[in-house]
Design a protein around this nucleic acid. Structure first.
Lengths: 188, 188
DNA sequence: CGACGCCTTGATAAATGTCAAACGTCGTGG
DNA sequence: CCACGACGTTTGACATTTATCAAGGCGTCG
């Protein structure tokens, strides 16, 4: 169990690298990504303080991973983990991937609302979310154009579901409205 | 290790049921599905002869599973599997889920082409695919409207990438063109 | 102050969804 | 044997959503 530090936008591992290590974030934020044949970038997930990433099916990484901000990680040898632990982590990843698929079948505002609620939950900083990632990162995670993400956010602000004191600070003014949006009970 | 048979459109297990068993298809075809809060149906995957399904994160099923045609399965107790086997299966599922996410970020024709190529590979019946599932099933798997799936198929037929001797029989007349489509090198 | 990166906004085009109708196939019953 | 009806599929017209292209604003850091 070793520790390492990375500046912003540094690559921690690349797709194709052997997947021998897991990483636990001490401070900072990380995204995993891959570029499809068509040239589209997919962001598999975002990982925040206290979260674990780097676990992948097979011996090699399919996704690359890059830091978003300056990041300190604990490096954990995969071989040092009991298979029951591995199984648990795999469960978690699988569920994440399945939910991501579901998310990608939603409309733009549903995706954005879902994303915000999830982020708020994971950051648990009382109604206000400080996003580490750029709009483009969010767009590539949600499968939307960056302009659509931006427009959707201002739309949510207009309906006073959220407030945007700064572009990366988001106040969940009305989480219930967001949840309702996710449940699709209202069409606009 | 037991064996069971189901008529078409029978439910094998439901979301929420304890996930104590895996199923190996002897003959037939199965789909796993769930319905989101918004009422959209998502089909997680299709499973064909020889394939294994029913493995899910956690103790309960998240997806339901239904037969598509008459189906015979081998029922396998999860507890009877070595954790290394479980891990392998989980790997496989995880990769499937990740690829599904990628698919859902593609355009309609890319999704359909990808789907056809994958099906052809799994059925390996020499250039011709006999699809067990309905257009609606395909649509709910690809995250498209049924009409879009239908239109895309006739479009592919017009470009003589495929032939449609019957609605559920598809001849891959030009797999290279399909692959090219998937790689996004041509816009229409 | 100025330049750069990121974000937003606007105008327009393209893709996809929705609603509706027609078509084909297949099985049933007259 | 044929007519009918049910169901899945296709096609058409149109509405809506989202992407694309282009410009402008805003904040930060030199």
């Amino acid at each position: 169990v070793n520790t390492r530090s990375f500046p912003p936008d540094a690559q921690i591992y690349r797709a194709g690298d052997p997947a021998n290590y897991l990483y636990k974030i001490v401070t900072g934020a990380v995204r995993t990504s891959r570029v499809s044949l068509e040239g589209r970038r997919q962001i598999g997930g975002f990982f925040l303080s206290g979260e674990l990433f780097g676990l992948e099916p097979g011996a090699q990484h399919i996704f690359s991973s890059e830091t978003i901000s300056e990041t300190h990680v604990l490096v954990i040898e995969r071989t040092g983990l009991a298979s029951s632990e591995l199984l648990d982590l795999m469960h978690h990843e699988l569920r994440r991937a399945q939910n991501h698929s579901l998310l990608l079948m939603m409309t733009a505002s549903e995706r954005v609302a879902t994303f915000l609620l999830e982020m708020a939950e994971r950051i648990h900083s009382g109604g206000e979310v400080q996003l580490p990632m750029s709009r483009l990162d969010i767009a590539d995670h949600l499968g939307l154009a960056i302009e659509t993400v931006s427009r959707t956010l201002t739309e949510l602000e207009k309906h006073s579901a959220i407030a945007l004191p700064a572009s990366r600070r988001i106040v969940l003014r009305n989480p219930a409205a967001l949840k309702q949006l996710v449940s699709g009970n209202q069409r606009r």
